[in-house]
Design a binder for these strands. Structure first.
Lengths: 110, 110
DNA sequence: TGACAATACTGTATGCCGTACAGTATAATG
DNA sequence: CATTATACTGTACGGCATACAGTATTGTCA
């Protein structure tokens, strides 16, 4: 892979980086487990890998923005995550920041 | 500062993170030196600190997306940066990615 | 005129967080 | 019955923003 491509990939990954939390939290309005979350987000064009999502979910739970429950009734054990109250507020705050950022960047790009 | 505020600040900083390169490169369509770049971006609502900008400029030059020239004729020495050819393409690629990201995230947030 | 703020940079250290990688185990498929 | 898909855990690594410290010159204003 060319140096150029390497740097571009890296910059693209940096671009996505901040939006990861946004994408994940916004999807967890309703309870969902990790593996299915990957597929749901994927189907909407939001690509996220296992190795990115699982650590992120754990971190967000530690920070108390997500609650989790193991469902062992299903065909196989699944850990369902959902927004906590605090997480709901956090998401709202982040969305505000995101929208403000978009305006600023778009004005720079004109 | 509360834990909540700490996590929010961190997430906001992650949100900005990817857009830093976008903001800086888009401004360097015309030659400009670091210190003034901070002020120009600042006046447009894009906040960036010395300790963030200078290392970023050095990195982008190392990656050959920026060229630089010392101007010592001025009242004091200033290092002017401007997009290279490669940088111009890089910026265009990044903008494409940025716009695509916005669409995806916004569709998630609806 | 002399101190303090503003200007304008360099360089190193730190820490967060995404990602890679390795591993575990069960269920579905063909 | 082997292979693939599902569904998770945990650690190691590296890139990059940010903090911090440092240097030196110019402008201001009391």
């Amino acid at each position: 892979m060319s140096e150029y491509q390497k740097y571009l990939d890296s910059a693209i990954s940096e671009l996505r980086r901040g939006t990861l939390v946004l994408g994940v939290l916004s999807a967890l309005d309703k309870p969902m487990y990790g593996y299915s979350l990957i597929q749901v987000l994927h189907s909407k064009g939001f690509l996220i890998d296992q190795s990115t999502l699982y650590p992120l979910l754990r971190r967000l739970e530690k920070q108390e923005f997500l609650k989790s429950d193991w469902e062992i009734e299903d065909s196989r054990p699944r850990k369902y995550y959902v927004l906590s109250e605090s997480g709901r507020k956090f998401l709202a705050d982040l969305i505000g920041e995101w929208k403000s950022n978009i305006k600023i960047i778009n004005s720079l790009l004109d």
